[in-house]
């Protein structure tokens, strides 16, 4: 456990000056910031619709959720999985990493856990910044109705689903970036996968949920409020279980690939 911990701290130390790490912070800041700015500068137009609190929150948070879930999340995961492995490919440091007196599983698991925690941090920031910027807008534009509804439950459920839905993609991309040192192969496969995923989810193909890349889109579609209470939807549905299963299975397969791999 100590080996896992030091390897995880080292991952943070190594990548704290890279774009993969900063993207986890900058993406939510930029996206939430620009949406909030839009809601501030276009307040008059938006106020004309007289949205009640819940609908206003829905419109406001939906803007970042849709951009994030449909496009940015898959691509961020693809880029980040590449970046975390590429730091070793680029500097030719796999050999020194694996000649340290640490077990190989700790090194591998720490890398994977670091990638998972970056997605977690990114989505947590999306959640927190959406929530805070809504209340900030309320202070700046008192006519807004953000204060009439507390979106914390519904938002946390949405972002929890997005987080779990990204684990399948992460594990696939993690293995691809582990095997290949170049950018094009994992990026190309990830890009094609994401496009196929979006199409499969949008045409509602019945097996779409088995395509890891389709799961974030399915997740967003299937959590549209149904029935009387919009907060009443489940976090753990079939597609989420499939994503988690992909995540765990491919994480294990990735480790076996690594142990059989000769370090060049």
């Amino acid at each position: 456990m100590k080996q896992f911990y030091v390897a995880l701290v080292s991952e943070f130390y190594k990548s704290r000056k890279t774009l993969a790490f900063w993207a986890a912070i900058l993406l939510p800041v930029l996206i939430c910031g620009s949406i909030a700015l839009g809601y501030y500068s276009n307040a008059e137009k938006i106020l004309k619709f007289n949205y009640p609190g819940m609908i206003l929150w829905g419109q406001f948070s939906g803007a970042s959720l849709n951009i994030m879930g449909l496009l940015i999340l898959p691509f961020y995961v693809i880029f980040m999985a590449f970046s975390i492995n590429n730091i070793e490919h680029k500097n030719d440091t796999w050999k020194t990493l694996f000649s340290q007196p640490l077990n190989k599983f700790s090194i591998y698991a720490a890398k994977y856990a670091y990638a998972v925690s970056l997605i977690f941090i990114c989505l947590l920031l999306f959640f927190g910044l959406t929530y805070l910027s809504g209340y900030l807008l309320q202070v700046l534009v008192p006519e807004y109705t953000f204060k009439n509804y507390n979106p914390s439950i519904i938002l946390s459920k949405f972002y929890a689903r997005l987080f779990f839905s990204s684990l399948g993609i992460l594990s696939i991309q993690f293995i691809l970036s582990l095997i290949w040192s170049d950018f094009l192969k994992p990026m190309g496969i990830g890009f094609v996968g994401t496009i196929i995923g979006i199409i499969a989810a949008n045409v509602q193909w019945k097996y779409a949920q088995y395509i890891a890349y389709a799961i974030p889109t399915i997740t967003l579609r299937s959590t549209k409020p149904k029935g009387s209470n919009p907060e009443d939807f489940q976090v753990f549905t079939n597609d989420i279980y499939i994503s988690i299963a992909y995540g765990i299975l491919l994480f294990i397969i990735g480790y076996f690939i690594l142990t059989k791999k000769n370090i060049k």
Binding site: Y13, K14, K90, N91, D92
Partner: peptide, 22 residues
């Protein structure tokens, strides 16, 4: 082994610190 494997984006001291951490 072969050419030294060091993280180019870190300083010399940070490279050593990272290894010391591990």
């Amino acid at each position: 082994v072969e050419q030294p494997a060091i993280y180019a984006h870190l300083t010399g001291k940070e490279n050593l610190r990272n290894r010391a951490l591990l």
